[in-house]
């Protein structure tokens, strides 16, 4: 039994703690916006936030996120349904083609802007390096992130980031 807090809603999940978060989101909670791409944290299609940090849900065991806040693409808009600045920028720049990787791209980008509201090109490259877009829309993704960055609130005192231990380590090696 694991407690998942997904997009602000708490769920008790009856599953093997070794089962990746991805399948609990998709199959148990029916949140299908998070995609399965590779299963080994190589493509980024399954990127979600755990306590605000981007992680690959396909390599994150349920046991590691017990009681933690998970945000998926379905929770990227605010509570009133107002799109995140990135989502509007994605539309303005006509970013998606097949669209399959875009939930993951958006979640990686959102995590970047939360931490670095005015990212340099190198910051963007680094943050997005774990996300493959097979349709090759990298130029548009980068432009859209820059547009959204212009609308981000200026940096205020950082909220304390919670350490998420193993997940972060996995993220940096595989991403």
């Amino acid at each position: 039994m694991a407690t998942l807090i997904v997009n602000g809603v708490s769920h008790e999940i009856e599953a093997d703690p070794a089962q990746p978060l991805l399948w609990a989101l998709r199959e148990t909670l029916k949140l299908n916006g998070t995609k399965f791409g590779c299963g080994i944290a190589q493509c980024g299609a399954c990127t979600v936030h755990v306590e605000g940090q981007p992680v690959r849900a396909c390599q994150t065991p349920l046991g590691a996120v017990d009681g933690l806040e998970v945000t998926t693409i379905e929770g990227l808009a605010d509570a009133d349904g107002q799109m995140h600045a990135l989502q509007q920028a994605w539309i303005d720049h006509q970013v998606p083609q097949c669209g399959y990787c875009q939930s993951g791209q958006l979640m990686s980008a959102a995590a970047l802007l939360a931490e670095t509201p005015a990212p340099s090109d190198a910051d963007i490259d680094r943050a997005m390096q774990g996300n493959i877009c097979r349709c090759g829309m990298y130029g548009r993704i980068k432009s859209a992130i820059k547009q959204a960055a212009l609308q981000m609130p200026q940096p205020s005192p950082e909220p304390a980031m919670q350490e998420t231990g193993d997940i972060d380590a996995e993220e940096t090696t595989n991403g």
């Binding site: 299908n32 995609k35 693409i73 539309i91 006509q94 998606p96 958006l106």
Partner: peptide
């Protein structure tokens, strides 16, 4: 013209084959 399918591809609502339930 903006693509008709794009809004559903920025909020996770687009249904791909793998999403059928």
């Amino acid at each position: 013209k903006q693509r008709l399918d794009i809004p559903s591809k920025v909020d996770g609502s687009a249904v791909f084959g793998i999403d059928i339930d």
